[in-house]
């Protein structure tokens, strides 16, 4: 049954308001990034800048700071973390979902418990450990604390639980080993969940400022947020146009990646009951 015009208009108005609230900072960022410095704090707000300053702002952000290097570092760190996370979490969560063994309930309880521990809690012991091992200020230090992901294990377990047991039994009768079952049967079926998890993981570690700030000191290892930070401190001074251009450049890969993986991402979210 179709609802009347007024309720539908109302519903859309509410949704539109939410979208505006979510999108406003990004729009502001983009508008500022194409504005010359003198217009950023101008007395009159004019959505269309009087002088179109995008080329110089973006050129400055790209050339004068350390942004290209920081973004490359971000890609290395994010992909490194994601690869190890998937390699470890997929078999672990398959075991938690589908294999019967003593202590499974307790292990899954530990996973749930791990979900409640923020990175700030083990930060100090992790830092000390890395310091004693002489691994501070390395890619490894940036990645290591995130290799084992309880969130990923939880997400994939929920997904694998729905996988039909009879297919697994058929595979065992056909002669597949458990690891082959994981990689050849379960993983292809879990692609939506893997896509959803990858978006969460990459976004979290691309944007992470806290941990890189602790373990990295050299600018060659700076991640995107550290790059922005350094750019603001040293290069731009009060040039908010260039700073916002830098922020837009750092955000762009994530937005693009989400648009590419959007369908799989939404399917992963809805199928694992994470809504």
């Amino acid at each position: 049954m179709r609802r009347g015009l007024v309720p539908r208009l109302l519903a859309h108005a509410v949704l539109l308001l939410g979208a505006v609230v979510m999108l406003a900072p990004f729009v502001w960022m983009l508008l500022t990034s194409i504005r010359p410095a003198e217009e950023v704090f101008g007395a009159v707000f004019n959505p269309i800048p009087g002088r179109f300053a995008a080329p110089e702002n973006y050129a400055r952000a790209w050339n004068e700071g350390n942004l290209p290097r920081a973004m490359l570092n971000g890609a290395i760190v994010c992909l490194g973390i994601l690869a190890v996370q998937l390699l470890a979490a997929i078999p672990a969560s398959f075991a938690l979902a589908k294999l019967r063994f003593r202590g499974r309930g307790m292990l899954f309880g530990l996973v749930l418990f791990g979900l409640c521990v923020p990175i700030q809690v083990p930060a100090l012991p992790l830092y000390l450990g890395l310091a004693h091992a002489g691994l501070l200020d390395t890619y490894f230090a940036l990645m290591a604390p995130f290799f084992l992901t309880v969130f990923g294990m939880f997400l994939f377990r929920q997904f694998f639980r729905a996988y039909p047991d009879e297919v697994l039994d058929a595979a065992r009768l056909d002669g597949m080993g458990e690891f082959e079952i994981v990689w050849r049967l379960a993983t292809p079926a879990a692609l939506p969940a893997i896509a959803a998890f990858s978006v969460f993981s990459v976004v979290a570690h691309w944007n992470d400022l806290y941990w890189p700030l602790i373990v990295v000191t050299s600018s060659e290892l700076a991640t995107p947020p550290l790059g922005i930070l350094a750019f603001r401190d040293t290069e731009s001074g009060g040039n908010y146009g260039a700073l916002m251009a830098g922020a837009a450049l750092v955000t762009a890969p994530l937005v693009l990646a989400f648009l590419v993986a959007r369908r799989a991402f939404l399917r992963g979210i809805t199928m694992t009951g994470l809504r």
């Binding site: 297919v167 065992r172 049967l185």
Partner: peptide, 17 residues
Amino acid sequence: PSERDVAMVFQSYALYP
């Protein structure tokens, strides 16, 4: 199971989707 020389047909067919 794979070395028992038996094959099984399941209620849900259990094909690899």
